[in-house]
């Protein structure tokens, strides 16, 4: 049973990791914690839901719609809002995105309403048997998509020219400028890429969770825990942090009461902030 829980934890955790990766990437490059991250997840989930409900598109395939939409949204938000506070005080940076989150979730409440919507997929209840392990088809599928996404994005950052520029900017934005990097453009690219990751993860989340205007609050805290754990700005850190949080959550839910398990990620967050604020994969600045 322990093994079964561990596997479940890893599967859920990897998906959490993907959800947090966009937040982490944006922080790494722009040095801004996006407190509206949860609301962007909410928008992604609504796109996937409506693509399924209105057009009959499968949640996984809905990324074909949600990725471009979120990319454009991300570029616009970066160009017109984030861009203006990139050198401002912490207060401005924190509360601009807090305000944006409020606006987005209440727009959803006004225009879509407070109902809970879920996507039904045929394979949601089916399972694969692997020895004594039972693996839900849906979680297996999300796991595969998560891993592929991580590999593709990591390769892109590692080997392409723009990927190197993104990494260079995140390590030293002034020097990157001196090397001829248009850092303003890199910020936009990084924010857009972060939104693409949000779109993909939101599509996967929609298979497992219902969507409603405040769903963002539920995920955003988990995302914060993950990125602080893995190191803000580190993509592999987000995956590892996600898996750790996922495993802890499932194991605590099994061995302690279901209700208290939600506290555990926060305790982990606080301990981590105290002991190793740069996270597992982060470096001190």
């Amino acid at each position: 049973m322990f093994l079964q829980n561990l596997v479940n934890g890893i599967f859920v955790g990897a998906m959490y990791g993907l959800t947090a990766s966009g937040l982490s990437l944006i922080f790494g490059v722009l040095n801004i914690v996006n407190f509206a991250h949860g609301e962007f997840i909410m928008i992604g989930m609504y796109i996937t839901y409506f693509a399924g409900a209105l057009l009959g598109v499968n949640p996984i395939l809905s990324v074909l719609i949600s990725v471009p939409v979120m990319l454009i949204l991300g570029v616009l938000v970066e160009r017109f809002l984030i861009n203006r506070i990139i050198n401002s005080s912490d207060m401005a940076q924190i509360f601009l995105t807090v305000g944006l989150g409020l606006v987005l979730s209440n727009l959803a409440l006004i225009f879509i309403g407070g109902n809970y919507y879920s996507v039904r997929v045929g394979y949601a209840t089916e399972s694969l048997k692997l020895g004594s392990l039972l693996i839900g088809k849906a979680s297996f599928l999300t796991f595969i998509v998560t891993v592929i996404t991580f590999i593709v994005v990591s390769m892109m950052l590692k080997y392409t020219f723009i990927g190197k520029a993104i990494r260079a900017t995140s390590q030293d934005r002034t020097t990157a400028q001196l090397m001829g990097v248009n850092t303003g453009f890199i910020y936009t690219v990084a924010f857009g890429l972060g939104m693409v990751l949000v779109a993909i993860s939101a599509a996967l989340l929609t298979i497992m969770f219902p969507v409603y205007p405040n769903i963002g609050n539920h995920f955003v805290v988990i995302c914060f825990v993950i990125v602080v754990l893995g190191g803000l700005g580190s993509l592999p850190g987000a995956l590892v942090g996600g898996v750790i949080v996922g495993v802890i959550e499932i194991l605590c839910g099994y061995y302690f009461s279901m209700g208290w398990k939600d506290v555990v990620p926060f305790l982990v967050l606080i301990i981590c902030l105290l002991v190793r604020p740069q996270g597992i994969f982060g470096t001190r600045t």
Binding site: L81, F95, L96, V98, G99, L100, G101, L102, V103, L104, S105, N106, L107, L109, I110, P213
Partner: peptide, 12 residues
């Protein structure tokens, strides 16, 4: 949600 929307807009 209109009141909170306006909160958010004013804050931004």
């Amino acid at each position: 949600g209109l009141d909170n929307l306006i909160y958010g807009l004013i804050l931004m």
